[in-house]
């Protein structure tokens, strides 16, 4: 048996949960703790916290969010964003995270992955690959939330980080991220075929159907999902009048989301995937 994991991904800026497009253009959605608790209670298999600003002066607020989460939520938590040193990893794990996700620091110094996986265990180290498709069909990796060009081939990089000891890969299509137009299946397939470690597909999921399609075409071990779950939670919370946010209430109340997003809760999503022949824990 193998079950595909559904992992809500929470992009965090300071104390807030945010969501952007192409990893930029952020909108405040609410408090990460509220979303995390809701997802845990509704059957999320893991959680990802991604610090999208990762400025040093906001690190304490991230650690507070991690610790508050780890006290009440008994599923694995991966934390990424702004991890530059082995000491950063230690602190994030000590705050209560189970895994860390690394992109920029690994690209700058690939032996960073080797050191981290030896010290903390391979399965603790997730390498985040953020790729942009080039006109010739190649994929290059970018760092700093898709801003910095590296000229490194994403498929070759995936194999390299596996050999350096990464325990898992999360693959983001920067082109598709936040658009809801579906995953970049070619990117996911090419990376998934080239490695033997688990692959988390991320970027562009706008409906449950996108996940069902992905699993037919390539071997995906997990989906990192944001918009379709976040906007579903907001709908439920607004309905219950229990929602507080520093975000744009008028926007949220208008019920408008992004054009391509079909919101769904985790139980319905998992039931749908099970019906489509993709085993999920329910």
């Amino acid at each position: 048996m193998k079950t595909v994991r559904i992992i809500p991904r929470l992009d965090i800026k300071g104390p807030n949960l945010v969501k952007g497009i192409h990893l930029e253009g952020l909108r405040v959605l609410g408090k990460p703790e509220d979303f995390a608790q809701y997802y845990y209670e509704n059957g999320a298999d893991e959680l990802i916290y991604q610090d999208v600003v990762a400025s040093l002066y906001e690190r304490n607020s991230l650690k507070d969010i991690i610790s508050a989460t780890a006290k009440n939520i008994f599923i694995p938590l991966t934390v990424g964003g702004g991890i530059r040193t082995q000491e950063d990893i230690k602190e994030i794990l000590r705050a209560g995270a189970d895994k860390v996700s690394i992109n920029t620091a690994a690209v700058k110094n690939p032996t960073f992955i080797q050191q981290a996986s030896r010290r903390f265990g391979s399965s603790t180290i997730v390498v985040a690959i953020e790729a942009i498709r080039q006109p010739d069909g190649k994929y290059f990796i970018f760092t700093d939330n898709g801003r910095e060009y590296t000229g490194i081939d994403a498929i070759e990089w995936a194999a390299q980080v596996e050999s350096l000891g990464a325990g898992e890969l999360s693959v983001t299509s920067v082109d598709n991220e936040g658009t809801g137009k579906g995953l970049d299946l070619e990117l996911v397939k090419r990376i998934s075929d080239s490695v033997s470690i688990p692959v988390i597909a991320h970027g562009g999921i706008g409906s449950a159907k996108h996940m069902a399609e992905a699993n037919v075409k390539c071997s995906v071990d997990a989906f990192a999902v944001s918009s379709i779950l976040h906007y579903d939670f907001i709908k439920q919370a607004l309905h219950n009048r229990a929602y507080e946010t520093e975000g744009n209430i008028d926007f949220l109340l208008s019920g408008r989301t992004k054009g391509n997003i079909e919101t769904i809760g985790i139980p319905d999503l998992k039931n749908y995937l099970n019906r489509e022949g993709i085993s999920c824990r329910v």
Partner: peptide, 18 residues
């Protein structure tokens, strides 16, 4: 093992099983 029934076995095994 790296594979089972000539199908790739992903290692580490990460996830929920019965």
């Amino acid at each position: 093992p790296n594979e089972i029934d000539s199908k790739k076995l992903r290692v580490p095994n990460i996830g929920w099983l019965g």
